[in-house]
Design a protein around this nucleic acid. Structure first.
Length: 680
DNA sequence: ATCCTTGTAAACAAGG
DNA sequence: TCCTTGTTTACAAGGA
């Protein structure tokens, strides 16, 4: 990266445009800023809390803990109530932390913070889903275990008392202490997981209420410790209460969940399922899970997928859920082994969280350093700062700037701006590419569906001076496909670039040249003579052709991404889980089919188009499965497409019979394009 | 080491 | 003449 950016700098220097290139070296320095990370690594001081309770009897302790939990719960509820009623509170960071505090006070270990960071960066739904699964399970186990421990404790005490054997005071005391500590520990863990679940809940619930791109916001907002200035800087200025409220709402949701979960119950009964396991059966949390990871059908089990048991290290094949349940109850019953595994799993999760925290920290530092400019609200909010050299498109964008193909109506840049910066583009840091100058289609390889990526992060790209992780070809294609008639003039393509990416608001000569170069170079771009002049269209078939069919399977992709994030620790099942949960998310907007992962391809919105690297290999012939081609082909591709001989095949076949073929919800928005044309 | 892809730079031509 | 649009060539870099 260093090398690359360095060379980049050198090369671009002459043209005097690539200012970003110069920071290659600094990035590392700032990343070192991981200093913050150390904070989270301060270890667990939880024990101190335990000490304070050292004098109580186990029973008292339990009672105390319950009371405490109830109190916390009440507190949360109160906060929720007040928070909701006071929209004036627009300090997102504050509100977030306010909610968090009680939790941490209530015995959360310092590590708890990291997961938030994790979500903040990656927010990859995959991770959430994964964690949910793991945690749901662990939670159950923990609860069981916790109960067991309590019982044992009681029994022991009773035994001792009945025996009348006045054990040496010290011995007894020690023992008690040990138990109590253990109890506390258990409770800690329990709460940790509850919190995690809660957090996940935040995220998972969010998508339903907020638009795709925005859904990321809350996640970041939740984190009290991170990106402080970023948030402050962005949110403070003109940040309407809207965002903060939203964030607050989310947090509250989460807190409510927490309260509910550990304060038991009866009163509050939000949709989220309780962890009260009636019979220890793992059906818990399914409802919540459903909301987030569509992979899971109502009747499914977090530990069951792809016909096999996902218990760490198990992978036993089970034909159906029933069999799996049986297997689960027999092989993974509540015993020492399972408990131990559970603990290990927890550690794994914690490690990951820590890792994530570090990475997120680094990412933040990088982003802050590179583009986010935390201090200035929105440097590029006024998108179209006419670029000197290019008279042609300067104005166009302005008016159209705020609509987005995803069909979502986005608030004017001003409102949106604050939000985006924190959200790492794409699936987390992986796609960041070290920011500015770094190019290389790496992300392209990830085959991150450009359209969904854009849909999710368009605000980010729009405002952050970050080079989008896509190749020019894919961007051009996206631009073209987003239009109603799948064709754009060169100038309109330019406009799209500038409108969609802050990054392309400068260095115009460079990237425009690149665009032209790509248009000419790639066969997939077809020039069509039009009344108005020439327009460019996409020959989907050609486009698909030129991309190696590698990334076919999601698992690989995810794996790559994971490895990219240095998640070496992730085990196969994790990866599998990630893979599973990741894709469905791409269709977040309308995940009608939570069911099979296979569903993702077809229904996803315009995703179909770009993402589809998964093209089967058989190259040109006929990719009936997912046919992205639908689009372009319709375009009255003039006579040009000489090479596309066999592709005559109309788009129709492939596609899912659904309407998406003719007009995916997202891609509409063309209207916005009109202004541009006029101006051009 | 080689090939492929991508990005960048630049020369050049045609047309308005 | 200047600018835009297109085409083409060359080269560097990264990845497989």
């Amino acid at each position: 990266m260093m090398v690359e950016s360095a060379s980049e700098t050198i090369r671009s220097a002459p043209s005097g445009q690539n200012g970003v290139g110069s920071l290659s070296g600094q990035t590392d320095g700032s990343s070192g800023g991981a200093t913050g990370t150390t904070a989270s690594g301060t270890g667990r001081d939880m024990t101190t809390g335990a000490d304070s309770n050292g004098e109580m009897s186990p029973a008292e302790l339990l009672h105390f803990q319950q009371q405490q939990a109830l109190q916390v719960a009440r507190q949360f509820l109160l906060q929720q109530a007040s928070g909701l009623s006071s929209p004036g509170n627009n300090d997102s960071k504050q509100s977030a932390s306010a909610v968090q505090v009680p939790v941490s006070v209530a015995m959360m270990s310092p590590q708890m913070l990291t997961p938030q960071q994790m979500q903040q960066i990656l927010s990859p739904p995959q991770l959430q889903a994964l964690l949910q699964q793991q945690q749901a399970l662990m939670l159950q186990q923990l609860q069981e275990y916790y109960k067991k421990q309590q019982e044992q404790l009681h029994l022991q005490l009773l035994t001792q008392q009945q025996a009348g054997k006045p054990q040496p005071k010290e011995a007894l005391g020690n023992k008690q202490l040990a138990f109590q500590q253990q109890l506390l520990q258990m409770q800690q863990l329990q709460q940790q997981h509850l919190l995690n679940l809660q957090r996940q809940g935040l995220v998972s619930l969010q998508p339903n209420q907020a638009s795709g791109p925005l859904q990321t916001l809350p996640q970041a907002a939740v984190c009290p410790t991170d990106l402080p200035q970023l948030w402050k800087g962005e949110g403070a200025p003109g940040q309407p209460a809207e965002d903060s409220v939203k964030q607050e709402g989310l947090d509250l949701t989460g807190t409510a969940a927490t309260a509910t979960s550990f304060a038991a119950p009866p009163k509050v009964s939000p949709p989220l399922s309780h962890h009260t396991l009636p019979n220890g059966q793992p059906t818990v949390l399914t409802s919540r899970r459903d909301s987030s990871s569509h992979e899971e059908a109502p009747g499914s089990h977090p530990l069951y997928g792809h016909g096999e048991c996902k218990w760490p290290g198990c992978e036993t094949l089970c034909e159906d859920l029933g069999q799996f349940i049986k297997h689960l109850n027999t092989e993974h019953a509540l015993d020492d082994r399972s408990t131990a595994q559970c603990r290990v799993q927890m550690q794994v999760v914690q490690q990951l969280e820590i890792q994530l925290a570090k990475e997120s920290e680094r990412l933040q530092a990088m982003m802050a350093h590179l583009h986010m400019r935390p201090s200035e609200p929105k440097p590029f909010s006024q998108p179209l700062n006419p670029v000197p050299g290019s008279s042609s498109f300067s104005k166009v964008t302005v008016s159209a700037a705020d609509s987005f193909p995803d069909g979502l109506v986005h608030p004017p840049t001003s409102a949106a701006a604050p939000v985006t910066p924190l959200r790492p583009p794409g699936l987390g840091s992986a796609s960041l590419h070290g920011g500015g100058p770094a190019r290389r289609r790496s992300s392209d390889k990830f085959c991150s569906p450009i359209s969904s990526e854009l849909a999710q992060n368009h605000e980010f790209y729009k405002n952050a001076d970050v080079r989008p992780p896509f190749t020019y070809a894919s961007l051009i294609r996206q631009a073209i496909l987003e239009t109603p008639d799948r064709q754009l003039t060169l100038n309109e393509i330019y406009n799209w670039f500038t409108r969609m990416f802050a990054y392309f608001r400068r260095n115009t000569a460079t990237w425009k040249n690149a665009v032209r170069h790509n248009l000419s170079l790639h066969k997939c771009f077809v020039r069509v003579e039009n009344v108005k002049g020439a327009v460019w269209t996409v020959d989907e078939r050609e486009y698909q052709k030129r991309r190696p069919p590698k990334m076919t399977g999601s698992p690989t992709l995810v794996k790559n991404m994971i490895s990219g994030l240095s998640y070496g620790a992730l085990n196969a099942s994790y990866q599998a889980a990630l893979a599973e949960s990741s894709f469905p998310l791409l269709n977040s907007p309308g995940m009608l089919n939570p069911g099979s992962a296979s569903s993702l391809l077809p229904l996803s919105h315009d995703d179909v188009g770009a993402p589809v690297e998964p093209l089967p290999s058989n190259g040109s012939s006929s990719p009936p499965r997912l046919s992205p081609p639908q689009y372009s082909h319709q375009v009255q591709v003039k006579e040009e497409p000489a090479e596309a001989e066999e592709d005559r095949q109309p788009g129709p076949p492939l596609g899912t019979p659904n309407p998406s073929a003719s007009g995916p919800p997202e891609d509409r928005d063309l209207e916005e394009e009109l202004p541009g044309e006029e101006l051009s």
